[in-house]
Deep mutational scan, measured.
Amino acid sequence: AMEMGLACVVCRQMMVASGNQLVECQECHNLYHRDCHKPQVTDKEANDPRLVWYCARCT
């Protein structure tokens, strides 16, 4: 999947907007926009540098 680069696995886009940054699952290393992931990634989750985030598939 490395050839995908830094794109969201849901929408396949790399564009990021304020409040909709890409977050990386620490287990599978897929990237998700906060708005694309279900459930939506919260501000607290996205902005906490100590948080280890896992996508819905890996939790």
Rank of each mutant, 00 (worst) to 15 (best):
R34V: 11
C28V: 00
P39E: 03
T59Q: 05
H37L: 06
H29I: 02
Q40C: 15
V9D: 04
H33D: 02
N47A: 05
G5M: 06
C11R: 00
V23Y: 10
A7L: 09
L51Q: 13
Q13W: 01
A56H: 10
L22E: 02
C36G: 02
R34Q: 15
Q40E: 10
T59G: 06
H37D: 12
H29T: 04
K38T: 12
W53L: 03
D43L: 07
N20E: 11
E27D: 10
G19W: 03
C8Y: 00
M15L: 11
K44C: 14
N30Q: 13
Y32G: 03
C11A: 00
M15G: 15
E45L: 10
K44S: 08
V41N: 02
A46R: 08
K38L: 07
L51Y: 05
G5T: 10
P39W: 02
V23D: 03
C55P: 00
T42K: 11
K38G: 06
Q21S: 13
R34W: 15
C36M: 01
T59E: 15
V10M: 06
M14V: 14
R50I: 04
E24L: 02
D48E: 09
N20M: 02
C36Q: 01
R57C: 08
M2H: 06
Y54D: 05
E27L: 07
N30S: 09
A56G: 09
W53S: 10
N20S: 10
S18K: 12
C58R: 00
V16C: 10
Q26V: 09
E3Y: 04
A56D: 03
D35Q: 15
T42A: 11
C55Y: 00
V41W: 03
C58H: 03
E45M: 05
K44R: 10
Q13P: 02
A46N: 08
T42M: 06
V41I: 15
R12V: 02
W53H: 03
D43K: 05
H37R: 03
L51A: 14
H37E: 04
Q40A: 12
A17D: 04
A1E: 06
M14F: 09
H37Y: 04
Q21C: 11
C8N: 01
Y32P: 02
Y54R: 15
Q26S: 10
D43F: 07
R12D: 14
R50N: 15
E27W: 04
Q26N: 12
D48T: 13
K38Q: 11
E3A: 07
C8D: 01
E27S: 12
E45R: 04
Q40L: 10
K44H: 06
R12A: 08
R57G: 14
V9P: 03
D35G: 12
C58Y: 00
A56F: 03
Q40N: 14
D48V: 09
L6E: 07
Q40T: 13
